[in-house]
Design a protein around this nucleic acid. Sequence first.
DNA 1: ATCGGTCCCTAACAATCGTTAGGTTCGCCC
DNA 2: GGGCGAACCTAACGATTGTTAGGGACCGAT
Lengths: 178, 178
Amino acid sequence: MLEAAAQRFVAQGYAATTLRQIAQDSGIKAASIYHHFASKQDLFVAVLDEGMRMMVDSFDAVRASSELGELRLRAYVRAHLSALFEHGPFTAAHVAAFSTAPAGVRARVVPARDGYEALWNELLADLMPAGDRDLHLLRLLLFGAMNSTIEWFDPAGETTLDQLAGLLTDQFLHGATR
Amino acid sequence: MLEAAAQRFVAQGYAATTLRQIAQDSGIKAASIYHHFASKQDLFVAVLDEGMRMMVDSFDAVRASSELGELRLRAYVRAHLSALFEHGPFTAAHVAAFSTAPAGVRARVVPARDGYEALWNELLADLMPAGDRDLHLLRLLLFGAMNSTIEWFDPAGETTLDQLAGLLTDQFLHGATR
DNA sequence: ATCGGTCCCTAACAATCGTTAGGTTCGCCC
DNA sequence: GGGCGAACCTAACGATTGTTAGGGACCGAT
């Protein structure tokens, strides 16, 4: 049921998604949702929290690997994309539907979000030390590029996720000109 | 009234925005909107089309300038950001609310959207000729980075729009490492 | 055998939505 | 000065929304 909800939230956003739609996708009736969640807001928060948990898990999995230097960043980018495209609709729901939720709901997800962003800030500070450039701003640009891929990238198309991760990492580190 | 509508669509998305809200912001009643637009969908399309028109205008203004090479790209990036932050909420509405609209409404705006994207594809092909790299993919990454700024950038903050345009251009062309 | 709890149902609630019908006011034009 | 259309109003429509009340079926434990 959580998965059906996530899929709807990805495709339609928070407000446009109906509890009756989610219920039908899950093979139950709308009122039955309230046996598992106290409100639509709670259901939404549960979906987004699950999505964020998966991103952190993906991140931690790379931490245990032994890649070095540039390949290391590439592995993290690949992990981020993997959570977005390969680990169910939860993470995609977080990225796509977060901004469509009312402010009150968004605030409940921000802490988990901040935690993940902090991981990336530390990662970039670790991989690209020294220099007066603003790593926080660069991280935001990287996130913008990575997260926007859900709007156009098709993992079943010509380009593979590995290739996309490679292109993203290479472009981020060395730019579009070679 | 179009402006009030755009502001609401930016902040809340399509589905969560009520005609009664837009009407109240405009100092009229909800039913009076129907004297200017045939439906909520038409109003939304009008807002997004206006936003896209402003982006194209911004783009064309740079075309008339005489910047060369790297500075030229930077001027285009600055123009894109300018449309996003300085030319009213229409362009921001397009970027932020497009994905929150039902598919039928989105389809009506796609042509104008495609036109603008084609301008950028030509621009990049012109500025960065030769090379087997996929300019279309790189353009999507650049758009992702640029458009995501509406979610966090504050033009009244420490960093100016000029600085942000510089950082974006530099990072896109030469990467985050120097 | 019966209790408690889980899971789901039907039926309905008040609220709010986009939209329509019909009327009023105002200024412009012949 | 009579007509006309633009701009706005009030009032209401049917549909849909999130949510609640109350009940039935099944389960394992007592």
